[in-house]
């Protein structure tokens, strides 16, 4: 165990954790955040995605010590039920969810990609989601929500 400083959604936390712990467990258990989720623990599904320095990263496979001190954004850092972020609002408008478990990975991956590639085409956006899974197969609505958001910000 050692004390690690994490900056999450604009707040700083000092935590006594094993520095090799994957970031996901620290976020969801020590900080009790509900956005990032454990899906596979193998970098295969995207459920655990958070944004670090503008990149969508898979927190299930990132040791917490690797992100010490850098700003980490989770799904709850984008917006709230009262004030959703425009991409979250687009998912609400398009009813782009069934069970909702995968939604974190879909939104965070798309958001990080569009932030870096604001002029991306539909095909490029789709490509960016190549490693993200939704087993309820809400694909059509999710694509629609992301396109609505992408067009709204253009």
């Amino acid at each position: 165990m050692s004390v690690i400083t994490l900056k999450v959604n604009g707040r700083t936390h000092s935590l006594d954790v094993d520095p090799t712990t994957p970031l996901l467990y620290v976020l969801s258990d020590d900080l009790e955040l509900r956005g990032p989720k454990f899906g596979c623990g193998l970098s295969q599904c995207g459920a655990c995605t958070v944004i670090v320095k503008g990149e969508a990263i898979r927190s299930c496979s990132t040791p917490v010590k690797d992100v010490e001190g850098v700003e980490i954004t989770t799904l709850e850092g984008l917006g709230s039920p009262e004030k959703p972020h425009p991409i979250q609002q687009a998912f609400i408008e398009e009813a782009a969810s069934q069970c909702g478990f995968c939604v974190n990975g879909v939104i965070m991956t798309a958001e990080a990609f569009l932030d870096k590639n604001p002029k991306a085409t539909e095909a490029q956006i789709q490509q960016a989601l190549a490693g993200v899974l939704c087993r309820c197969f809400t694909h059509v609505r999710m694509h629609r929500a992301i396109m609505r958001y992408a067009q709204g910000r253009a």
């Binding site: 258990d29 039920p81 972020h85 979250q88 609400i92 909702g100 939604v103």
Partner: peptide
Amino acid sequence: VKREDLPAVVTGQFEFVHNVRLPGMLH
């Protein structure tokens, strides 16, 4: 009618069973 759970789901506030936390809970 719109799904009532969506605002909480898309903002990471929804409590899945995975998010249930009890005092003194072990893993």
